[in-house]
């Protein structure tokens, strides 16, 4: 492993918390590679990473945001964490944009706030200064904050990054209305074990979350995997919503063709995921049958476009 890898890896026992917000870029035409690189250049001097196949996926450099706030813990009351969050924007197919924020949370012996330089020396790490167990931080984060309590808001950081990605002003807006969705994930870092464990659950508000245990070396892969799952759950929701809307409101029929054009070709689970993670996808498929649902939905949209009177 490279020296950089060694330095970047947190110790086992830490947890990584993340949240991905997914939305449609308000553009009729997908951004070209050049436009995508321009739109995602959030930090001067750092490259935008682009992969072309099997579909274009462009990832912005990370921005760093300082935090000093409560972290939810399922066992005790909230605990205090100080450090920073990193966030990046991901553009898939030139059309679907995601704001993805994460932080590695470590429980430290120190019980007071350090000089700021202590935290900027490790961007993306939050140190908890109260006693807390990693598993309680995972459960607390995934459960969401109880009413009236504010805690680490990764969704807001991700949304901020998402909003910074603009389209081409010369390009007309999207002819399809979709809603943003967000997906929380938590990774429990385990030492020396190569196997991974995953759990998908829809939360009380219908939003999904992912809980994974993996080796610290897999942080990047897990992040990408969760972004990929968030993308597909959003695609499903977007297409389902437009289909339902067209049933109730004939005026919404005109959204069906753009929906198919924008989204139909983007369903490619595992497209950019390392082979070890295919098993996790299979688990999602077994739990929720998302792939079958998508196939049925796509057929239904096509039928409504071609024979709108025969289908409901």
């Amino acid at each position: 492993m490279t020296a950089a890898g060694r330095r970047a890896l947190p110790r086992a026992g830490a947890v990584v918390l993340g949240e991905v917000t997914t939305a449609l870029l308000d553009q009729d035409l997908p951004l070209s590679r050049e436009q995508a690189e321009k739109a995602l250049r959030l930090v001067p001097g750092r490259p935008v990473a682009v992969r072309e196949h099997p579909r274009r996926r462009a990832v912005s450099p990370e921005i760093v945001v300082g935090v000093d706030c409560a972290l939810a813990s399922s066992a005790s009351g909230p605990v205090r964490g100080i450090g920073s969050v990193t966030a990046r924007a991901v553009l898939t197919g030139g059309h679907v944009v995601q704001g993805s924020a994460r932080a590695t949370v470590r429980v430290e012996e120190s019980n007071k706030r350090q000089r700021w330089g202590h935290y900027t020396a490790q961007p993306g790490v939050i140190e908890v200064v109260d006693a807390a167990r990693p598993e309680d931080l995972v459960e607390g984060f995934l459960a969401g904050e109880p009413l009236g309590h504010r805690s680490l808001n990764l969704g807001a950081v991700g949304t901020h990054v998402l909003d910074r990605v603009g389209g081409d002003p010369a390009n007309p807006g999207a002819r399809l209305k979709t809603r943003r969705t967000s997906l929380r994930w938590a990774l429990r870092l385990i030492g020396g074990v190569a196997s991974m464990d995953v759990d998908f659950r829809p939360g009380p508000d219908g939003a999904w979350w992912i809980r994974v245990s993996a080796n610290p070396e897999e942080i990047g892969t897990v992040t990408e995997f969760c972004e990929d799952v968030a993308l597909h759950l959003w695609l499903l929701r977007a297409l389902d919503t437009v289909c339902e809307r067209s049933v109730r409101n004939p005026g919404a029929m005109r959204e069906l063709t753009p929906a198919l054009n924008y989204l139909g070709h983007l369903w490619l689970p595992e497209a950019h995921v390392k082979s070890e993670f295919r098993r996790l996808w299979q688990h999602l498929e077994d739990t929720a049958g998302v792939e079958r649902e998508w196939t049925v939905l796509l057929d239904r949209v096509r039928d409504r476009i071609h024979a709108p009177d025969l289908t409901t």
């Binding site: 760093v64 945001v65 300082g66 935090v67 000093d68 969050v85 805690s151 990764l154 807001a156």
Partner: peptide, 14 residues
């Protein structure tokens, strides 16, 4: 990176 005020939870972006 601006030093966060106590209570800064990411809600208010920089």
């Amino acid at each position: 990176v601006e030093e966060p005020a106590p209570g800064a939870d990411g809600t208010r972006p920089p």
